[in-house]
């Protein structure tokens, strides 16, 4: 009973203090919100790109090209070795598929049928080599898959010559490396920005609380003489910190939503075309809402409570 009575008082005192201290509170919230938006934006961009790799077909295929000089028996042997290698690995779940050079040409014409230069390549003049295609599920496994498939380079033909050399294996590992480096850069920049802003927001919130303490110095002094407990005196400030944190989380979520719908999705879509050559599907905001909300609330509470605790420890002697 007494607990709830006091809780009500702390909450109303917290709001009063925020009202009295509008400017600093607003600044605190703006900084905290920027912090959250940066985190959220980087997260949304990165997850959207990642989620979509698997849906871009050509990325998840490794091709082992066969020299034109190979006899059908040799092609057969390469295929058997490859199948054995693939079945040996838990990551690769499908057997290699043989695609003849005619088939390649057909696909090539399908892909570029409206382009006049594609007509140069005909059945007699077919530069495309037959290949084995190995399909795997997770694009992020590509490095490992490539290294497994590369074991085929050890296979020797009857004459003692190597059937496949490194140059015959083609994959989108470069795309993967590009994306990884972009992701690393994004993360580094994002985390650095975030750390700076978090520290800054801790500082500003701490100062907001400090101002509140100073404004209520006499009152606090008097409360101590009246026998108010330490918790009772501190609680309104903690409440103030919590309110700042939660309010920031709420505002950041709203802004992130607008940002996502009106700007980010377009940017992600066009940059994915640039990076991967395929357009990716943008997931709806609601798919990310729970994790963003949780992250923002935790961040807000963390910043609010930590800054508040430090300020109280420093400036409020009870």
């Amino acid at each position: 009973m007494k607990f709830f009575r006091s809780l009500g008082r702390h909450i109303s005192q917290g709001f009063k203090s925020i009202h009295r201290n509008k400017v600093m509170t607003t600044v605190s919230i703006i900084i905290l919100v920027s912090c959250m938006l940066i985190l959220g934006t980087f997260y949304l961009v990165i997850t959207n790109i990642e989620e979509n790799f698997n849906s871009i077909d050509h990325l998840n295929i490794i091709e082992v090209r066969i020299r034109n000089t190979c006899t059908p028996e040799e092609v057969e042997k390469i295929g058997e070795s490859l199948t054995a290698i693939c079945r040996n690995s838990p990551i690769i779940t499908e057997d290699p598929v043989y695609v003849s050079s005619e088939e390649h040409l057909k696909r090539f014409h399908e892909l570029y049928n409206d382009q006049t230069w594609s007509a140069f390549f005909t059945g007699e003049l077919n530069p495309l080599r037959a290949s084995y295609q190995i399909t795997f599920t997770n694009f992020s496994d590509i490095t490992e898959v490539v290294s497994i498939v590369s074991k085929i380079e050890d296979i020797e033909l009857d004459g003692g010559s190597k059937a496949i050399s490194a140059g015959d294996i083609s994959s989108c590992i470069d795309v993967y490396r590009n994306v990884m480096s972009i992701k690393r850069t994004l993360y580094t920049v994002g985390i650095a920005l975030m750390v700076i802003l978090i520290l800054f927001s801790l500082f500003v919130i701490g100062n907001t609380i400090k101002l509140g303490i100073t404004a209520r110095k006499d009152e606090i002094m008097f409360m101590r003489y009246c026998g108010a407990t330490k918790h009772f005196i501190r609680a309104p400030f903690i409440v103030e910190g919590i309110i700042i944190g939660l309010l920031s989380a709420l505002i950041a979520l709203g802004l992130e939503y607008l940002l996502y719908v009106y700007a980010l999705s377009g940017i992600v879509r066009s940059s994915s075309v640039a990076i991967t050559g395929g357009e990716i599907a943008i997931s709806p905001f609601s798919a990310h809402l729970p994790i963003l909300a949780a992250a923002f609330v935790i961040m807000g509470l963390f910043a609010g409570i930590i800054a508040c605790a430090v300020s109280l420890k420093k400036y409020l002697k009870v």
Binding site: M1, K2, R5, S6, R9, F222, M223, C226, G227, A228, F232
Partner: peptide, 11 residues
């Protein structure tokens, strides 16, 4: 009322 409020007396 203030001293009573800060020690949590009832309204």
């Amino acid at each position: 009322a203030f001293p009573m409020q800060v020690i949590g007396e009832s309204g």
